[in-house]
Design a protein around this nucleic acid. Structure first.
Length: 876
RNA sequence: GGAUAUGUAGCUCAGUUGGUUAGAGCGCACCGUUCACAUCGGUGAGGUCACAGGUUCGAAUCCUGUCAUGUCCACCA
């Protein structure tokens, strides 16, 4: 029976309702699916978005890609879990709330106090979190909300404490002093990744420490020289070889320094004087040199960026004041050789842009180089590198393996303590000199918990298993429950920019906690850029809000624009035009369904086996054959993560093959099975398209069928039937295209119909196809089929599909002449090229045989064509 | 400085292990339709595949170098 659909697909009429019914149907939850016990698992843990802000197009792309993988596997019968969550993003969130409080209430976090401030943060988080979840649902993400997690909720807090204690017990977490990146404004250490560099001009001073020291040094920070313990030179620098290992005691602006001359490869002979004053307390490199050479560490600058006690007049001065004072003293004493302006990169805090002070400080570290029994005698670093080297974890695209390994090999101990309030508080308590590390507070009076919190990546590093019930689900080395069913996960899909920050930490922590990698594959997507290739950002105002686009064009259009035209690891550009184009496709798809379902004999529930293959028309065979190939290629491409290629092929089929050819053909040549074929094709492409554009496919499915829920319908399988007649429809197509082309290339009076005579020499010729050719937008008036070669001299002759076609009508002969001679030129060029190649002995001996044969055929075809062309030209 | 990627039509991008005359979408021009489609369909114009060498019977594809752009890492004392 015929079904009436709206003329235009209205996304807002369907999307929310469909999402709700999916959710209520429990289709996102693997526990609620009827699956055989042997069903393989397919798990993706969603990279948790920061709760600081609403989602942007990058998130939308991530959701679209992962949802595609998930829906595909769900339809293929996997025990499919996609687990949602959000990240507390410690520093980022704290800063956001601090700014908000300052702006709205004019108070700082210190004025509020820790508890009151955290209450503020938590209410902020509650709001943003629900916003983000709402956005994910708008994107159609089929996430299992029953397992929703937050990196700072109770379960995750318990897991983090457990992890910290286990690592401590294994000797991998220690408290130590090291030069850390200290932000004096945030009063916090920063990880190396959180430091940014800013180009600026700086003064480079070159001077002698004192009259007694023969080596001059250069520095931009003379005030730190109060803490120097050595002078480093390049071992190959002849100027200084004689001084290596000598000690100097100098009076540097009133402060006594003991300086040892050391040789170190890291010193560049070309820079400055080629000699470097070593200040272990206030420079990362210097710290490493000091460690390597067993030198003392003298702290000059304190946490508020002032000169420390014990430096006489300098104590209490700001770094800048101290610098000016030292410079003027050196100048006065005649020790200053020169002061020049140079380009310099200043390290600044990524949150507040304040200059970083490298400072020695007591911090908690994860030892990455220490061998442990938990990792069979390997260190975290070794174990994490090994899984990538052995291919247990594969990066897509592969080139990122190298980036991962390079970074991993150079990894230093990971400083995990942060001096901020929002986050996982360290499970560490102090009483005097005593230190206690434990899952709960120690018994007894007087214990004070460490006020620091953990680096946000510590908790997100545990994300794949802390969300699946660890540690409770991991007793005596045995996994149970979700952890058993869903870990390791199959694929981590994320942006390439956080390989080092996040991916590496997840690998280390999973190896430590469970002895297994957290995932098998890492699929890396590129960044979403604007149409000019620039990063989208709020300050530039070039951002596109996915929700705005969804409102205007529908979720499916947004998804499709993010899923096609991309390749793994490469950035992609997106514009509103792109999304509008995809909306047009979605609407086209809807109208295909509308057309098919409007047939009086329409029956959506026809089974594959209902189609009688012996009753098919050429067009029926052709489309079924195309569809069969499409099923196979789509399945393979998605399995290989080439979803963009799969999407392009689906679009090609749907728009060009199905809509432009098959549907048009059915208007003029309808076989007895055509209605069944139409239903079958529609049903199949709805399934194939569903992972890409879930809403419109489900909407059509529901409108046409009593049975709901395309989302859990089985993925189509190709048939082994051989559609022998399919190729003959290709010939008809070719013929029609040739007539259309000839018509469009020649000037024809608009009202005039073309009369066409086809010279028959093929056995595929069927009467039913004649009407097809006549009607299919070719503008043909009369069509004659004849065996007679004796045809009108003034006709225009074209050939296609092995037939000779005569066009009669008001045709511009000059244009036709022009066209024919142009064609002739091309043919001659082609023939000479082919002849030259085929004449070459080497080509015939070395090229594959089928290629040679193919090109031979081609040559004779081209020669035939040329003869016909010349004959036609002669007639004109 | 090291690494990595990119450079293909006016624009956005495909191009799998080397193999006919290098493709798609958008835009543009022309023709045809108004019969499922805020239309739709067809045809066409436009490319020294960044540049220069090399390997090969054959190179957009492999190798070397150069240039441009992007990104990451390290360092800048």
């Amino acid at each position: 029976m015929a079904i009436e659909l709206d003329k235009v697909y209205q996304s807002d009429k369907y999307e929310d309702e469909i999402y709700q019914s999916w959710e209520q149907g429990g289709f996102f939850n693997p526990d609620k699916q009827s699956l055989s016990d042997s069903a393989e698992s397919y798990t993706i843990i969603l990279p948790p978005p920061n709760i600081t802000d609403k989602l942007h197009l990058g998130h939308a792309a991530m959701l679209a890609i992962e949802d595609l993988f998930i829906r595909f596997h769900r339809m293929n019968g996997y025990r499919t879990l996609w687990l949602p969550g959000t990240d507390h993003a410690a520093i980022a969130t704290q800063t956001a709330v601090e700014k908000k409080l300052k702006k709205e209430q004019g108070v700082s976090r210190h004025e509020l106090g820790r508890d009151a401030f955290l209450t503020e943060v938590n209410s902020f988080v509650a709001v943003t979190q629900s916003t983000i979840i709402g956005q994910m649902k708008k994107m159609g993400a089929s996430l299992d909300w029953s397992r929703l997690a937050f990196t700072l909720d109770d379960d995750r807090q318990a897991a983090v404490r457990e992890m910290f204690c286990q690592m401590y017990e294994a000797g991998l977490i220690y408290r130590g002093e090291r030069v850390v990146n200290w932000c004096p404004r945030c009063a916090s250490t920063l990880a190396d990744d959180e430091v940014e560099y800013k180009e600026q001009k700086a003064m480079l001073y070159t001077f002698y420490y004192s009259q007694d020291c023969p080596i001059a040094i250069s520095t931009t920070r003379p005030e730190t020289k109060l803490g120097d313990v050595a002078i480093a030179v390049n071992p190959r620098d002849d100027r200084y070889k004689q001084y290596i290992n000598k000690d100097f005691v100098v009076d540097f602006c009133g402060v006594e320094l003991k300086l040892k001359v050391i040789a170190d490869r890291n010193v560049e002979a070309e820079f400055g004087t080629g000699a470097l004053g070593v200040t272990p307390a206030h420079s990362m490199v210097d710290w490493q040199m000091a460690e390597a050479h067993g030198l003392a560490v003298i702290k000059v600058i304190d946490e508020s960026a002032q000169i420390h006690q014990g430096f006489g007049d300098y104590s209490g001065l700001s770094t800048l004041e101290a610098r000016e004072k030292i410079v003027s003293q050196l100048t006065a004493a005649g020790l200053m050789i020169k002061a020049e302006e140079i380009d310099n990169k200043l390290s600044v805090c990524y949150r507040c842009d304040t200059a970083i002070e490298p400072l020695p400080s007591k911090q908690w570290f994860v030892a990455v180089d220490k061998a442990t029994e938990r990792l069979a005698g390997k260190s975290l670093k070794q174990a994490a590198a090994e899984v990538a080297r052995l291919g247990e974890i594969q990066f897509m695209p592969e080139r990122f393996t190298k980036r991962y390994l390079d970074w991993m090999d150079n990894l230093r101990d990971w400083c995990v303590s942060r001096q901020i309030w929002f986050g996982h508080r360290l499970p560490v308590w102090y009483k005097g000199k005593e230190v206690f590390v434990g899952r709960t507070a120690p018994a007894g009076e007087g214990w004070l918990q460490d006020s620091d919190t953990l680096d946000t990546w510590f908790s997100s590093g545990m994300w794949t298993f802390s969300t699946l019930g660890w540690p409770a689900a991991f007793a005596n080395g045995q996994k149970s429950g979700d952890l058993l069913n869903f870990h390791p996960t199959q694929v981590l899909e994320t942006g390439y920019e956080i390989i080092t920050l996040w991916v590496s930490r997840m690998i280390m922590m999973s190896l430590f906690a469970l002895g297994e990698a957290p995932f098998n594959k890492v699929y890396l997507h590129g960044m979403i850029l604007d149409q000019h290739g620039k990063k989208m950002s709020k300050s530039k105002g070039n951002g596109i809000d996915p929700l705005d686009m969804i409102k205007l064009y529908g979720t499916d259009a947004v998804r499709l624009s993010l899923l096609t035209g991309t390749t793994a690891g490469n950035d992609s550009r997106i514009s509103e035009d792109r999304i509008a184009t995809e909306r047009n496709f979605v609407n086209k798809f809807w109208n295909i369904a509308r057309y098919i379902s409007s047939s009086p004999n329409f029956n959506f529930l026809v089974a594959d086996s209902d189609i009688n293959y012996s009753q098919l028309t050429l067009a029926d065979e052709w489309i079924l054959n195309k569809l069969n190939i499409l099923i196979t290629s789509t399945t393979e491409q998605i399995k290989a993560y080439n979803f963009s290629v799969a999407g392009e092929a689906l679009k090609e089929f749907t728009w060009n093959d199905l809509a432009d050819w098959y549907l048009e053909a059915t208007k003029f040549s309808r076989g007895s099975e055509t209605d069944k074929v139409l239903s079958f094709v529609l049903r199949t492409i709805l399934k194939l398209w569903h992972p890409f554009i879930p809403f419109v496919t489900e909407a059509i499915w529901r409108e046409l069928s009593a049975k709901a829920d395309l989302i859990i319908t089985a993925w189509p399988v190709a048939t082994s039937h051989n559609f022998a007649q399919a190729a003959n429809f290709e010939l008809i197509k070719e013929l029609i295209v040739a007539i259309r082309t000839a018509r469009s290339e020649n000037t024809i009076e608009p009202a005039k119909k073309l009369n066409v005579i086809i010279c028959k020499n093929s056995n595929i010729w069927l009467n039913e196809q004649v009407s097809l050719i006549k009607s299919l937008r070719t503008g043909i008036g009369e069509l004659t089929i004849t065996d007679n070669d004796d045809l009108p001299a003034d006709a225009i002759v074209i050939t296609a599909a092995g037939l000779t076609i005569y066009l009669l009508g008001a045709i511009d002969k000059d244009k036709e002449k022009n066209r024919l001679s142009k064609e002739q030129e091309q043919l001659i060029k082609q023939i000479s090229g082919l002849e030259a190649r085929l004449a070459s002995e080497e080509f015939r001996s070395k090229a594959p045989a089928d290629l040679v044969a193919k090109q031979n055929d081609q040559l004779s075809a081209a020669k035939d064509q040329l003869a016909k062309n010349q004959a036609a030209l002669a007639k004109l």
